[in-house]
Design a protein around this nucleic acid. Structure first.
Lengths: 233, 233
DNA sequence: GAGTAAATTGACCGACCGGTCAATAGTCTA
DNA sequence: TAGACTATTGACCGGTCGGTCAATTTACTC
C-alpha cells in the first residue's frame, strides 16, 4: 500500500559537493539532470499519478517553477523520463543481443542475460509496469521494433541451422523469452511468502533461473522425429 | 498517457431500474455494492492514486460522504475492492484447477484455461499489475498459498506417473505457467504495433496460444534418456 | 406511534495539486 | 561595460484532494 504511506525518505539525495556547486554557479544541464533523476526515482516508486511536482522539486532541491521551465508540464516531464529510461533499456538489450553472435547458444544467452538484467535493475521492472498501465503508446516504438526484428532474424538463422525447432514463430519465442524473467521479478516480493522454507531471495532466483532455462530450452529443441513443415500458420 | 486525460465516459452506469429503486428506497447493501462497482472500474482504469473519491461518488451516483460512511477511507475502499477482486480471481482459478482431474493433460488444460481467463477478463490483468505496484502484501495470502499447494501436489502426481519431467520444481513450473499468458496480455496493446501484417488481435491471440502451449509442454515432457535423479537442487 | 439506530445529504475544512507570472540574478556576447 | 538572454526564485492562482460534521431522512423496534 505504498501510495498511502508518506514518503519518509530524506528530503533529498546527499547534497554532494558537485550538486551544491552546480546549484551555486548556474548549470542548467546539471539542473535538468537533477530533476530528471529525482523524477525517475519518485515515478518508479509511486507512479506518475502518485508523484507530485512538489515532491520532485524537493528531492531535486529546486523550485517547482524550475521544473516547468525545463520540462513544461508534468506530463512532458513523465514523457522525458520515459524516453530517458527506455533508450537506456533498449540500448542495453541491443548490446546483449549483438554480443552473443553464436547462434548455438542464442536463446540460452538471451534469456539468461535478460534475467540478470532485470535482477540487477528492479527499477526497470517497475518502470515497465507503470508504462504499461499509464501509457498506450510506446515511447520509442522504432527502437523496440528494430530490436524485435533483429531478434527474429537471429532466431530464423538458428532455425535454418536446425538448432531451434522450426514450427514456432520467432516473434512468439521472443515474447515468451521476455515474459518468463519479467513474470518472475514482477511477483518476486510475494513469492517469498509462498515458500515455506527460508531460502534466501538470491538463492531462489538462481534456482528459478536454472529451471526456467532448462524448461525454456527444452521446449524449443528440435525433436528427432520432427521433420515436418517449417513455418506453420 | 491515460492518467493525463480527463475521464470522458458518461458520468454513471446506465441508471437501471434496480439501481434507481435501490437508491429511492434505502438499501445500504445495494449502495455498498454500487460504490464497490464504481470504484472497481475506476481503479482498474486509473489506479488507486489516479482515482479520486469524488469520481467514484459521481459514477456510483452517491455522495462522497457515503463512501466514507460505508468504507471509512480511500485506502480501506481500495483494500475492499482488492479483497473482492482477488477472492473472485482465486475462486475461479481453484475451480479451473479442480476441474481438470486427469493428470495427463493437467498442464495443457491449466495454461490454456489461464490464458482464456485473462483473455476474457482484461481487467484482471490490469488489476494484478496495480496490485503488484501499489501493495507489498497479498490481500488473500492464504488463498494464493492454498492454490499453489494444490497445483504443486497435482504436478507431483504427474511427475510420479512420468508424465512430466521430474527435474523441474513444480513451484517453478506454475510460476512459468502463469508468467506466459500474463506477459502476453500485459503487452498486448503494444504487440499489434510490432507486427507488420494486419492480423486481428483475436487471431494473434490464437496463434500465440498455440505456440506457447506447444513450447511450454515440450519443455516439460520427459525425454527418453531422462532417467536421472528427480528432485534436483 | 414513539424512539432509536442507521443511511444519506450537503456544507465545509485545511492541505495540496499543477500551473502562472513578474521580478531577480547569474552568464554570455558585443 | 552595456545589454540581451535565460536560469532561478517566490508569491500566488483556482481547483481539487481526502476527510469531517451536523442535520435530515428513512427503516426498524418496542
Amino acid at each position: 500500500m505504498a501510495i498511502f504511506l508518506a514518503d519518509n525518505s530524506p528530503s533529498s539525495d546527499p547534497p554532494a559537493d558537485e550538486a551544491q556547486d552546480a546549484r551555486r554557479r548556474r548549470d542548467p544541464e546539471a539542473t535538468r539532470q537533477a530533476i530528471l533523476d529525482a523524477a525517475q526515482e519518485l515515478f518508479v516508486c509511486h507512479g506518475p499519478a502518485g508523484t507530485s511536482l512538489s515532491a520532485i522539486a524537493k528531492k531535486a532541491d529546486v523550485t517547482k517553477s524550475l521544473i516547468h521551465h525545463h520540462f513544461g508540464s508534468k506530463e512532458e516531464l513523465w514523457l522525458a523520463v520515459e524516453e530517458y529510461r527506455f533508450r537506456a533499456y533498449f540500448d542495453i538489450q541491443r548490446k546483449m543481443l549483438l554480443e552473443s553472435d553464436s547462434t548455438a547458444d542464442l536463446l540460452r544467452d538471451s534469456i539468461t542475460a535478460y534475467f540478470r538484467f532485470l535482477q540487477s535493475e528492479p527499477d526497470s521492472v517497475r518502470f515497465l509496469m507503470w508504462h504499461m498501465l499509464e501509457d498506450e503508446e510506446q515511447p520509442c516504438p522504432n527502437l523496440e521494433k528494430e530490436l524485435f526484428e533483429l531478434g527474429i532474424e537471429k532466431i530464423r538463422e538458428a532455425q535454418d541451422k536446425g538448432e531451434i525447432r522450426s514450427d514456432l514463430e520467432p516473434f512468439f519465442i521472443i515474447k515468451s523469452l521476455l515474459a518468463l524473467p519479467m513474470g518472475w521479478f514482477q511477483t518476486r516480493c510475494m513469492t517469498q511468502a509462498l515458500i515455506d522454507s527460508d531460502i534466501s531471495a538470491e538463492r531462489l532466483d538462481e534456482m528459478y533461473l536454472e529451471d526456467m532455462v532448462k524448461h525454456f530450452l527444452e521446449g524449443v529443441r528440435p525433436r528427432p522425429e520432427d521433420d515436418s513443415d517449417p513455418m506453420a500458420g
